[in-house]
Design a binder for these strands. Structure first.
Length: 559
RNA sequence: UGGGAGAUGGUGCAAUGGUAGCACGACUGACUCUGGAUCAGUUAAUCGUGGUUCGAAUCCACGUCUCCCAGCCA
């Protein structure tokens, strides 16, 4: 094994061993089974990369199957977004798009079969009574008084449940397993409940709907799935998964559980994400601060960076909390290679170059991406009046500050070396203008003069106004979930809108979602809110900032 | 006080009875027309106690701690 090669995770090890021993006829079929009750998030990306990745590596296939067994929570809007997000992430289910609802009739027939075998019964207990009869974690449950109805009566009642003769909640179909099992999932689990609700695909054809446990394994079986990969909380369900398949004597996939992804400074449960949306804490499922795939996409994350992230976090069984910094690292790494560089001033400060001719304009050559010469160069207009970053000028520079200050010199990126010769302040004593002179012999950096700092700039005459949205972690603490009052952890400053920014003219026609590096600042993309004449950018992630660390350290040591 | 699953640097993942390694982070330094990138280096870990063994992160025993399960959700 070469040192760069990653060792396979335990899931791939298991599958490889089975295939090597001749199981499954060498076929590997997996599935990604989302419920269309919300948008996909980065945690789903881990599962998608595993499900589709494993299938591809073993020459098999991966199905996309919507687990749509609960009409009251599901919507077509969600199925469309899920399909879009999976495609965007870079995976393809080909012909293999399925819905659990396609199997409702087969599931019904199999339920009838279990009734006939004496393995299922109709229960008239109410939901509350069923809970009461179920017992507790430490005490066994009790058998329902309806548990020993005749096969005929069960068949009749079940048929009438389907026919709509009974109101919601009046009866359920249960598997007859073991009310004393230490595994609660085996205490006669509910298979069907009555719900007179319109389903987004089957309409009003059904008023009884299968529960997850009853639908999932059998759907896997119908599709010939070999490996049903799911998260750890389903481990306790595996005995039930196996029980149904064995009772029916049908194709029996292997369920393997892995640990779900937890990411720092965010929440991942669909319930909580929905709450953030509904309560207006974010602007929608695709708010750039959300850990949803649509949010990450709008934020400027690339599919490759998310796939790389999923690859790096690995697949195991231990509960984890991945630092969001790793995700940020992955997107920087990817964007460093592909994002064109451009200059943009976020907090503008006016600079006048006193000895530069008023009417002169020079077109300076700028490199589009130093990491990739094939991306070429562009022209950037240089004029007497410029905008520079407020932070690139200090009246009283701290030590190790390499930028502009009274009497100091800096290089303007791709331009000239300038020297600060004065400032203009307003009545309140605020600096409104920095006066400089330039050295005409240093155009394009053509000099061996040593200047420590290089700063970015835009021409005041040619720059385009823009809005820039800066984002920070949605939550203040790494693990907001662990607090009952998780919403109190929301970061009130997770969004900062800068409406007075200037970008270089090359950005005039930037396409929505296009990625850029604003030199020395960070990676940004064009927000869909952007329009001609009203450019809007999102900061995907800042550049690594060594200076801010130095500054903090100096401040700490009293320097 | 039921059942299930886990525990390796700050974080995540390896090592499958034989030198505890990789990545992120943090910290040094080199280089640089981005205080970016790149390069070199440093830091830092086997939950505890016993046992088996020439040798234990790995096997055994007993503890400890964490997570999941009492939906007619998935």
């Amino acid at each position: 094994m070469s040192s760069t090669e990653k060792s396979p995770d335990f899931v791939r090890e298991i599958i490889a061993a089975e295939i090597a021993s001749g199981q499954w006829d060498g076929r590997v079929v997996t599935r990604f089974p989302p419920e269309p009750n919300g948008y996909l998030h980065i945690g789903h990306a881990k599962a998608i990369c595993l499900d589709f990745g494993v299938a591809a590596e073993f020459g098999g296939r991966c199905h996309l199957r919507f687990d749509d067994t609960n009409p009251t929570k599901e919507q077509v809007e969600y199925v469309e977004s899920i399909k879009e997000d999976i495609r965007w992430l870079g995976f393809d289910w080909g012909e293999h798009l399925y819905y659990a609802s396609d199997y409702f009739e087969q599931l019904y027939q199999w339920a009838v079969e279990l009734i006939q075998k004496g393995l299922a019964y109709v229960d008239d207990l109410s939901a509350d009574e069923i809970r009461e009869y179920r017992g507790t974690l430490t005490e066994p449950g009790r058998e329902s008084p309806y548990r020993n109805r005749s096969v005929e009566e069960n068949l009749d009642l079940f048929a009438r449940m389907r026919a709509g003769e009974f109101p919601d909640g009046s009866r359920v179909l249960r598997a007859k397993i073991d009310m004393a099992s230490p595994n609660l999932n085996l205490r006669d689990p509910v298979m069907y409940r009555i719900r007179h609700a319109t389903h987004h695909r089957t309409g009003d054809a059904w008023c009884i709907y299968p529960m997850y446990d009853w639908a999932h394994g059998q759907s896997d079986s119908i599709e010939g799935i070999t490996h049903s990969l799911c998260t750890m909380e389903y481990e306790d369900h595996r005995p039930l998964y196996d029980w149904f398949l064995d009772a029916l004597g049908i194709h029996h996939p292997r369920q393997i559980e892995f640990a779900r992804l937890n990411l720092s400074h965010t929440v991942m449960s669909k319930r909580k994400l929905l709450q953030l949306v509904n309560e207006g804490i974010v602007t929608g499922w695709d708010d750039p601060r959300m850990p949803t795939l649509s949010g990450l996409r709008r934020r400027g994350y690339t599919p490759a960076s998310i796939r790389e992230f999923c690859d790096r976090i690995g697949v195991g069984k231990t509960q984890n909390l991945i630092a969001v910094e790793l995700l940020e690292h992955c997107v920087r790494e990817d964007l460093n290679k592909r994002a064109p560089r451009v200059m943009a001033v976020l907090h503008p400060l006016h600079v006048i170059i006193e000895n530069y001719p008023e009417d002169q304009v020079e077109e300076l050559d700028a490199v589009n991406n130093p990491e990739d010469a094939s991306m070429g160069t562009r022209k950037v207009p240089f004029t007497r009046e410029l905008w520079i970053e407020q932070d690139d000028w200090r009246e009283h520079p701290p030590t190790k500050y390499f930028r502009l200050s009274p009497g100091a010199e800096v290089r303007l990126r791709y331009g000239y070396i300038i020297k600060c010769v004065g400032v203009v302040k307003n009545e309140r004593g605020e600096i409104v203008q920095v006066r400089c002179t330039y050295d005409p012999a240093t155009r394009g950096g053509a000099t061996d003069r040593k200047v420590k700092g290089t700063i970015h700039w835009v021409s005041a005459r040619y720059a385009l106004p823009a809005e820039v949205r800066l984002y920070d972690h949605l939550f203040l603490t790494p693990k907001p979930d662990e607090d009952e009052n998780w919403q109190a952890q929301v970061n009130p400053n997770s969004l900062e809108r800068l409406t007075n920014c200037y970008v270089e003219p090359a950005l005039a026609n930037a396409a929505p979602l296009a990625h850029f590096q604003f030199e020395r600042t960070g990676y940004f993309n064009v927000d869909p809110d952007s329009a001609a004449g009203r450019l809007v950018f999102n900061r995907t992630v800042s550049l690594r900032d060594t200076w801010s660390k130095i500054e903090k350290k100096e401040a700490r040591s009293g320097g």
